[in-house]
Design a protein around this nucleic acid. Sequence first.
DNA 1: CGCTACGTTGATAGCTTTCAATTCAAGTGG
DNA 2: CCACTTGAATTGAAAGCTATCAACGTAGCG
Lengths: 239, 239
Amino acid sequence: MIEKLLMKLAARDEVSPEEEAALRDAVGDPVDVPSDKTVIRAGQDLNESTLLLEGLMCRYKDLRNGSRQISELNVAGDFVDLHSFTLKRLDHNIMTLTPCRIAPASHEKLKRISEQFPHLARLLWFSTNLDAAIHREWMLSLGRRTAVARTAHLFCELFIRFELVGMTEGGGYRLPITQTDLAECLGLTAVHVNRTLKVLREQGLVAFRGGTVTIHDMAGLKRIAEFSPAYLSLEKRPR
Amino acid sequence: MIEKLLMKLAARDEVSPEEEAALRDAVGDPVDVPSDKTVIRAGQDLNESTLLLEGLMCRYKDLRNGSRQISELNVAGDFVDLHSFTLKRLDHNIMTLTPCRIAPASHEKLKRISEQFPHLARLLWFSTNLDAAIHREWMLSLGRRTAVARTAHLFCELFIRFELVGMTEGGGYRLPITQTDLAECLGLTAVHVNRTLKVLREQGLVAFRGGTVTIHDMAGLKRIAEFSPAYLSLEKRPR
DNA sequence: CGCTACGTTGATAGCTTTCAATTCAAGTGG
DNA sequence: CCACTTGAATTGAAAGCTATCAACGTAGCG
């Protein structure tokens, strides 16, 4: 059940059998949630974190005028709100973008991990630091990249993140979200995302249709996105 | 020396005398660094984290065309790269924006803290999660707020962060950086920041001149920024 | 008294948004 | 099997916010 989470952790550091057991023990029974449902609301008091087993979720905030910014896309294996373990209340909402299966991990058990398995705790800490690194890259996109580069960059990032949990198929992957969802990730309007996708498609770089991303020219895509995977900490080393 | 760091932590949770001692023990001798110096470069292998004692620093990334995005401003008392403890290599550069005094904290000692003082470790973990929360708020600014709201929001955020370490004076604070620096935080050009500052000034909300921010109408400033301090986790509670 | 960094202002260009329509795909019911 | 419905994707035209390019003002300094 926590296999995808383990794949991601194991790509970054050794995980001992005892640590794996502790992690398994911390995760409770899975629950199914329909699409487009806000699972966690900003400000709510939390005593457990949520592990995403299947599906796509996102973190978002919105403004009074209704405009919304998604701050992270979460794929299977992601601990969508591990940061609530220390924050206790989140500053953003979390919703499903597709039907999802999730499982809780009580803060009580996570606390025990932090006391009895310091190395595992550091790995979990690492995971939240990785989220922050992704946030910084998105800031660079939002603040400085053009719409085309920004969109290309997101497709590159997701390729690697899906690859880490064995969810790419050939040069692409399933991403069953709407152009409006994409727009809310990219700080653009849905209309402009549509035009931007058209450019990427016509340049033979990548196609996003019917909820799947097909990368036709990875090198070219990375080039215009100025994509470098370093921020994803893909090295396996003691942490 | 670590007083400002302690002020910030103590605002969020109890810090025991033993924990305080462990923290003091982890921090090495201070060093002075001139302004505009990149102290840490992306990709470099790190075995210590840096505590900012005095001055202003920032994290930034840039694109091939030379445009730069600052992803966080760090004030005195901030651990500017605590996340390098688990990341080991940073995805961004860190530079001084003013003359600074910094002090190192070896990863070795931090590791010991994670093993012997799990609660203190959680507080440090909390600090990095707080950085991520700030990142998310900046993403909302970069992606969805107008130039005026974005600038106003930054001034609100900094007011609270300076207040936490006792560095506000009346309705304002020192912020000895250039409009170009601000532009790199806000995802704007320096020229547009200049015009935006003019609007804020003429509306009687806030003035930024000679490196100091003077807030004339905090309520109005918060209103146009849609500023709510919740993301700064200002509650004192067990973590 | 020039030099230089920073701040200010004006005019113009350009990317993205807005507003509106139209097309497409998929599901529902007659 | 085919209208009807609905959400999503496309496309066009116009408006708007921000960037660009350039010039000029200001203040600190050797």
